[in-house]
Nucleic acid binder design. Structure first.
Length: 503
RNA sequence: CGCCCGUUCGUCUAGCUGGCCCAGGACGCAAGGUUUUCAUCCUUGAAAUCAGGGGUUCGAAUCCCCUACGGGUGACCA
């Protein structure tokens, strides 16, 4: 069986959004599942759209996601270099080869003139295409005499190389996800293969590199499906065996329709990028999943299930499990919007799965920033009490502040509902009781309070809620006995006394 | 406008070789339960006339055709 080799081939024109990450992920899963090789190739043939820092961003993002490469711009490999701008010299010979074989030709048209043609066509509600019809009337090596062409080339007049789309031909293609796709060459145009700036276009570089790098499967977004016929034709023109293709359905804007774009940034209130991105020109920041507090494995898990499903009811997958379960024929055909709420749910699942110790360690960083010191075992205990209540580590403070400091205010709604004339007196009495409890541990405290309640004929609800108000400042939090034990006898009594004064 | 791709609960989807589907799961939502509170958790529920219409068939979400709608693409961008 043929060796499986796939590539993720982004263009460094900006940050990679989650659609791109998903494409990389599916390539990765497919490669690992089939003991294949995962390659990162940077397609930077467009010098005009180059964005500083984008390549680095892409590499860092994928690294954060746990998507690893076997060959790449940074780690090299048998087919280095992996940056197309560094392979520049390579492409010319292939372009020449196609000219020699009659599959391509020189075109000397001036960009402005073509633009003019397009505008005119548009005015007449038509679309200008450089094809079998129009090329007869344009300045190219098909219409010009051999001498003229020689002369123009000699004088280094700017020109491009265009692919000669064969006439009256049916291109039959196979897509792993979509099945058979057929297109008539009449609907295709003579795409530029080699630009006047000496760089190949995506189409040429892509085919040449995929062939040279022995790519077995091209897994890319559906936006490439329209150029598949051209690519197939190119393989045929070169006499090369084409790889297999799988065109992934697009990720759609969560609101309305249309494919997700980089510009959707923070517009919708949640990230569309894996990690923060600061535009080098505008300085504008777009937030990422990483900095927003998501775990990479939760993020990856969510992404994997967006367009692919295992066919079972399992939803939580580690990367290894994804690799094991993944197959291209379980990738859906239709585009999907993703649900930010479900992404949070995934994060919650990963958070509660972590050990109390691990969560404590993460949360400790937030405490350090607040200059709060706490014994490890105490913090671990607190985490066991509250970690199920949050979706993110950063939300932990809201659920635990009362372990570290007295409430700064008392929720008015709760005061209204839980505090009455007798409360102050009752709480004072309760404070006295608490002062006698030794050791000050949850089960013992609970028992003492229970006995005290019965003795005085007090209702559990009224007393405990009022007490909670004094200790927490709100109607929330874990079991009061636990809160008191961790807070300590002295502080507990202090809060009761202060609270009575302040309410 | 041309070409191509798609269309099952609000969202992600199961359903692929037709009958077990008057359509299952998950998120979200609602109600109830547990709880001293909140959250978690548990239970239950609402939610898709399977885009619409024609066929084929004893029988179609599943096969075929048409229509509609949505999307992609139509650069010397990738």
């Amino acid at each position: 069986m043929k060796k499986i080799r796939v590539r993720f081939a982004p263009s460094p024109t900006g940050p990679l959004h989650i659609g791109g990450v998903r494409t990389a992920l599916y390539n990765y899963l497919f490669a690992r599942k089939n003991n294949g090789t995962m390659i990162l190739r940077v397609e930077d043939t467009d010098q005009a759209r180059f964005v500083e820092g984008a390549e680095n961003y892409i590499i860092e993002s994928l690294q954060w996601c746990g998507i690893e490469f076997d060959e790449s711009v940074t780690i090299g490999g048998p087919h280095a270099p992996y940056r197309q701008s560094e392979r520049k010299e390579l492409y010319k010979q292939y372009s020449d080869q196609l000219i020699t074989s009659g599959n391509a030709y020189y075109a000397f048209d001036i960009p402005d003139e073509l633009e003019q043609n397009r505008k005119e066509a548009e005015a007449g509600k038509k679309i200008f295409t450089y094809n079998a019809e129009s090329r007869k009337n344009l300045r190219n090596s098909l219409t010009l005499s051999k001498q003229e062409v020689e002369k123009l080339l000699q004088e280094e007049v700017p020109h491009v190389v265009r692919f000669l789309i064969p006439e009256h031909t049916e291109v039959v293609m196979h897509d792993i996800i979509r099945g058979k796709v057929v297109v008539q060459t009449e609907s295709l145009d003579d795409k530029v293969l080699f630009k006047s700036d000496g760089m190949p276009t995506y189409h040429l570089a892509n085919i040449v590199d995929d062939h040279l790098m022995e790519i077995s499967h091209v897994i890319r977004g559906e936006e490439w499906l329209p150029s598949l016929p051209l690519h197939i034709l190119l393989y045929q023109a070169f006499g090369w065996e084409a790889p297999e293709f799988a065109h992934l359905p697009l990720l759609l804007k969560p609101d309305g329709n249309g494919k997700l774009s980089k510009r959707d940034g923070d517009r919708l209130g949640f990230p569309v990028f894996p990690i923060d991105w600061i535009d080098p020109l505008s300085g504008e920041k777009s937030s990422g999943y990483k900095e927003s507090g998501y775990y990479p494995d939760a993020f990856v898990n969510m992404l994997a299930l967006l367009g692919w499903n295992p066919g079972t009811e399992q939803e939580i997958f580690s990367m290894d499990e994804l690799i094991e379960a993944f197959s291209l024929d379980r990738v859906g055909k239709s585009g999907s919007k993703f649900d930010p709420e479900k992404t949070k749910w995934f994060n919650h699942q990963y958070l509660i799965k972590k050990s109390d110790e691990a969560v404590a360690e993460e949360f400790n960083q937030i405490l350090h920033a607040k200059n709060i010191q706490i014994a490890d075992e105490k913090l671990v205990k607190i985490m066991s009490l509250v970690k199920e209540r949050v979706q993110f580590v950063k939300d932990l403070w809201n659920e635990t502040y009362f372990f570290f400091e007295a409430p700064q205010s008392y929720d008015e709604q709760v005061v209204k509902k839980r505090w009455n004339e007798q409360s102050a007196e009752q709480m004072k009495s309760l404070a006295n009781l608490l002062a006698t409890i030794e050791p000050f541990e949850a089960p013992i405290i609970d028992q003492a309070i229970k006995a005290w309640l019965e003795e005085n004929q007090f209702g559990m609800g009224a007393i405990m809620n009022a007490l909670r108000l004094l200790l927490v400042g709100a109607a929330k939090g874990p079991h009061l006995g636990d809160i008191m034990e961790i807070t300590g006898k002295e502080e507990t009594i202090l809060r009761i006394k202060n609270g009575i004064e302040r309410i």
